[in-house]
Write a protein that binds this DNA or RNA. Structure first.
Length: 465
RNA sequence: GGGGUAGUGGUUUAGCUUGGCAUGAUACGUGCUUUGGGAGCAUGAGGCCGUCGGUUCAAAUCCGACCUACCCCA
């Protein structure tokens, strides 16, 4: 498994060997969540719930099926999705009068109901989210977690009194994202999509993008400002304090199981997965190293050690399988457990335990008395280092250019005057896509790579995964 | 969207050219010996060869369609 040589092959291999998913389900792009993969997904969902609950979003759950007429109300939206939805056309043997589709995203399921929920300014802001499966008929080649047809999906949907309050929500979403990405040790950039690449129906779209080892970008999610583009066709209106009726302004924030793919791709190495402590099902694994004559003493000591670490609030697994220690080391490295804690007769005699970091392979000794504290500190350090290192790698993959000739397979940054004409020319000439322009100012001063006009806006260009 | 490669016990693989008992490894079960970086021996179980159809006395093998996975190009 060589990540640097053939990223694609490495990714497929590791996802299978670490047992994150079972791709043998016989429908294209629909994989089985295995226990290990699902636990990681659930840890991510738990983080999401914590952050959104803490910011006064309410979890809801809307139906999977959407009637065709309801789906078709917003023109841009249906244009963007109608080639990739799954249809339900029959009930039993009877053709349906109104066909139903499997949600590709839930705007059109939710908004007719939002129009009933939102009556007055006192109902606003309405902040909801749900974690459900969505369906998109991908025509490109599928890939576990990264491009699938049944997508485990998070989506928040909010309604606001006016544009300004919706903008405030977008800024809150940026803050939530920053906290979440830190927990997952994932570096990212917020890039505003071009007008020709924004979400169907949105006023603007901000993509959350990261870079993979092969130089391609991976979109982790998006945040959209809809203004009143949906509230008008779906009649989400409220009565203001002044008695006037106004359309709500709306936003959404979506992320998916791609986060699992990103964690695999960003942190994994040739030995297997490397899980950030926050999403690791098992944060520490205790391995007793048995020796003849002392097997029971070592086993007992290992049980006590594991329990003590567990009591300190660390998700701890005691590996008592009848395998050689080396086999266990390889196994847990493949599974990405952040920290290995070894206890053998030699450690016991010295009153220590051996800690081995998954990310660096570095070994260290900790006093047995303070083992739990040492494990906790080490996990914090691992998380901090994972984020720092991944951030450096992403920064190093960004290359600023002033010409479009001989571009490397990197995340390209170049000046852009902002016109659609020059934008299309950039995409045609580079045979890559404009991912977007930075949301946060970057103090850029340069010239448009096409027309040469001075500009303070850089544009990010890449092949997307 | 266009082109290509491949599907054989859980995984991997031989057999396909030239139709005739499906081969090994690994993983798995059991027993004993082992245990600080992938243990050894013994023994056991597991496959109607991706699906459907065609040719044939006979198909994993030849032909067709489909499904799925992977690769390359747009």
């Amino acid at each position: 498994m060589k990540k640097a040589e053939d990223f694609s092959e490495w990714y497929n291999d590791i996802v299978e060997k670490a047992n994150l998913t079972d791709k043998r389900y016989p429908v294209k792009g629909m994989n089985v969540w295995t226990p290990y993969g699902w636990k990681i997904m659930r840890a991510i969902d738990t983080n999401i719930r914590e952050e959104f609950d803490a910011t006064s979003h309410d979890e809801v759950c809307f139906p999977l099926l959407i009637p065709e007429d309801q789906f078709a109300k917003e023109k841009e939206h249906i244009k963007g999705f109608d080639t990739e939805v799954f249809w339900v056309t029959h009930a039993g043997l009877t053709p349906l009068d109104v066909r139903l589709l499997l949600r590709p995203t839930s705007e059109t399921a939710m908004y007719p109901i939002f129009s009933l929920w939102v009556r007055s300014h006192a109902d606003l802001p309405l902040k909801t989210y749900q974690i459900v499966n969505t369906f998109r008929y991908e025509t490109k080649q599928t890939r576990a977690f990264i491009r699938v047809r049944e997508i485990h999906f998070f989506e928040s949907h909010t309604c606001h009194a006016d544009f300004e309050d919706a903008e405030r929500q977008v800024r809150e979403d940026y803050e939530i994202l920053e906290r979440l990405a830190k927990r997952w040790c994932i570096p990212y950039k917020l890039l505003k999509r071009t007008d020709w690449d924004k979400f169907p129906g949105a006023a603007y779209t901000v993509g959350i993008d990261t870079v993979l080892p092969n130089g391609r970008t991976l979109q982790l999610g998006s945040i959209h400002q809809y203004m009143d583009n949906f509230s008008k066709p779906y009649e989400i209106k409220y009565e203001g304090e002044d008695g006037q009726h106004r359309y709500a302004h709306q936003t959404t924030f979506g992320m998916s199981e791609r986060l699992v793919g990103a964690i695999v791709a960003i942190h994994g190495d040739d030995k297997g997965l490397v899980l950030p402590p926050e999403v690791a099902t098992m944060q520490a694994v205790v391995i007793p190293v048995l020796a003849k004559g002392a097997t029971e003493a070592v086993s007992q000591a290992a049980r006590e050690l594991a329990e003590e670490i567990r009591q300190a609030g660390i998700r701890t697994h005691l590996d008592e399988r009848d395998l050689r220690p080396g086999a266990k080391y390889y196994d847990w490295e493949l599974k990405g457990v952040p920290l290995r804690v070894e206890l053998g007769i030699r450690d016991m005699e010295k009153g220590v335990v051996t800690l081995v970091r998954r990310d660096t392979g570095e070994k260290s000794l900790a006093h047995r008395k303070d083992a739990a504290g040492a494990v906790k500190d080490m996990l914090d350090k691992i998380a901090a280092d994972l984020l720092t290192n991944a951030g450096s790698i992403m920064d190093a993959s960004i290359v600023t250019v002033d010409s479009l000739d001989d571009l490397p397979d990197k995340f390209i940054r170049a000046g852009w005057c902002g016109t659609e004409e020059c934008g299309h020319r950039i995409e045609d000439r580079t045979e890559r896509n404009i991912i977007g322009t930075p949301v946060e100012g970057e103090g850029f001063k340069g010239m448009c790579v096409v027309c040469g006009k001075p500009t303070t806006t850089p544009v990010y260009i890449a092949r997307a995964m």
